[in-house]
Amino acid sequence: MAALVYLGNNANDIADFLTPFADGWSEGWRDFFRGALGVLLFIGGLALAVVTFTALTLTIGGALLREAVGEGRPAGRAR
């Protein structure tokens, strides 16, 4: 969560750092490009956070569920 807050507050600075080639562009295009890159960086960080949270939740929750229920076959499946 703290990383997303940091990324949100500093996305434009990071975009400025990543796009030195845009320094020669007109101000409007440069600001638009860097703003769009900042938004994409934040969306990428958010997507990474969601995927990481989901993976951890399924890994930990799956182990706890197997421990609570047992390792038997699911109900309703006859052999």
Score class of each variant (00 low, 15 high):
M1Y: 03
M1F: 07
M1S: 13
A2P: 01
A2H: 13
L4K: 06
L4G: 08
L4E: 14
V5N: 09
V5S: 11
Y6E: 10
L7D: 04
L7G: 05
L7T: 02
N9T: 08
N9A: 10
N9R: 12
N10A: 05
N10P: 09
A11K: 14
A11V: 08
A11T: 06
N12G: 02
N12L: 13
D13L: 07
D13P: 05
D13I: 00
I14Q: 05
A15P: 02
A15E: 01
D16S: 11
D16Y: 08
F17E: 10
F17L: 12
L18P: 04
L18M: 15
P20I: 07
F21V: 00
D23M: 06
G24M: 01
W25I: 02
W25A: 08
W25S: 07
E27P: 00
W29R: 11
R30P: 02
R30I: 03
R30C: 04
D31N: 11
F32T: 07
F32P: 00
F33W: 12
F33R: 01
R34I: 03
G35S: 04
A36D: 09
A36Y: 10
L37C: 01
L37N: 00
L37S: 02
G38C: 02
G38K: 00
V39H: 04
V39P: 01
L41W: 00
F42H: 03
F42E: 02
I43K: 07
G45N: 05
G45R: 05
G45V: 05
L46T: 13
L46K: 06
A47N: 00
A47Q: 03
L48N: 05
A49E: 09
V50M: 14
V50C: 10
F53R: 13
F53K: 10
F53I: 10
F53S: 13
A55Y: 10
A55V: 13
A55M: 06
T57D: 07
L58E: 11
T59P: 00
T59A: 14
I60W: 13
I60C: 04
G61Q: 00
G61F: 04
G62W: 01
G62H: 04
G62D: 01
L64S: 01
L65D: 08
R66C: 08
A68Q: 12
A68T: 09
V69Y: 06
V69T: 07
V69E: 11
E71I: 11
E71V: 11
E71S: 14
G72M: 02
G72Q: 13
R73M: 10
P74C: 03
P74N: 12
A75Y: 14
A75G: 05
G76P: 03
G76D: 09
G76E: 07
R77A: 10
R77D: 02
A78K: 15
A78R: 15
R79P: 09
R79D: 14
